[in-house]
């Protein structure tokens, strides 16, 4: 027989907000990973695309004069850092898509009717999922890059790369989640992802140093968040990790490693503060 409300309290966990937030966040994250395991094409596409870039672009510019590339012995080596960041960036930019589909297909309503201890669980699960995916994809690019002979960072360098990628992924995930709640549907979100992806890449130091660029593009590249992530990673590949070193010779002045990380941190915190009222309203 179907029991009624009398035994509900027996089935409940002892009431502890942290336990509850953990339980619901874990369940929501687990759902996203089940989706990934059963539909892994997005994961592979996210790895494959930058790999093709790495192979083709490195081949395309293999005879370029490497003396102009700061600290690199080949164009492939120079390109590696850019593509690691681009992979993480592209992955994070897609963070809003699962949320958008849940909004459109009504699954979000199922979550919103439930007495979640904190609606942040919905955001937390997306952030955990996208961060893991983006890091996995980026590490796959690093491994391939090493296999192609473009080097592997030291332990300190690896740590710096991870921190840098985490900051960038958090910031872009926040932006994408914000868009997922503002835009009317997935078509619009995908359109923005398409429009943003390549121009942001080209207007950064992923493919060429600032010194190669006309002044206007150099200025854009020197304020592009991707550049602040690419240069510390490039340093992690080429030098011993020294964040005091000047990494970007921007038109507005010199930017060292600490400043790069600080800017990414401020961007992440700023974006999350910016979307917080929106998430509060949408998930209220």
């Amino acid at each position: 027989m179907i029991a009624t409300n009398s035994s509900f309290s027996q089935g409940k966990q002892s009431r502890n907000d942290l336990n509850e937030i953990f339980q619901e966040s874990f369940a929501l994250t687990w759902r996203l990973f089940i989706q990934l395991i059963r539909r892994p094409s997005t994961l592979f596409a996210g790895i494959l695309q930058p790999l093709i870039w790495l192979l083709l672009f490195a081949a395309l510019f293999s005879k370029a004069p490497v003396d102009f590339l700061p600290g690199s012995s080949s164009y492939g080596e120079f390109l590696g850092a850019g593509l690691i960041v681009f992979t993480a960036f592209s992955g994070a930019l897609n963070a809003g898509l699962p949320v958008m589909f849940d909004r459109e297909f009504g699954f979000l309503n199922r979550l919103l009717v439930a007495p979640l201890s904190s609606r942040s669980s919905i955001v937390i699960s997306s952030v955990i999922y996208i961060t893991t995916i983006s890091l996995l994809q980026s590490f796959a690019i690093m491994a391939t890059s090493a296999f192609l002979g473009y080097g592997w960072p030291s332990l300190g360098g690896f740590f710096l790369i991870t921190i840098t990628l985490l900051l960038l992924v958090f910031a872009i995930t926040g932006l994408s989640l914000g868009l997922a709640f503002v835009l009317p549907g997935h078509i619009e979100l995908i359109a923005i992802i398409f429009i943003a992806n390549l121009p942001v890449l080209f207007a950064s130091t992923a493919l060429a140093p600032i010194s190669f660029m006309p002044e206007w593009l150099g200025l854009i590249a020197s304020i592009n968040p991707l550049t602040f992530a690419i240069e510390p990673i490039r340093m992690a590949y080429h030098n011993s990790v020294d964040l005091k070193l000047v990494l970007i010779n921007a038109p507005y002045g010199e930017v060292n490693g600490y400043s790069c990380l600080a800017i990414l941190f401020i961007l992440t915190v700023g974006l999350f503060f910016l979307i917080r009222p929106l998430l509060n309203r949408k998930l209220a």
Binding site: Q10, Q13, N19, Q23, E24, A27, L28, R110, L111, A114
Partner: peptide, 15 residues
């Protein structure tokens, strides 16, 4: 259903 149980914070055995 397991996901739903977690969203309502049911304990494992009961769920």
């Amino acid at each position: 259903l397991l996901l739903q149980g977690d969203l309502y914070h049911l304990n494992k055995n009961y769920k």
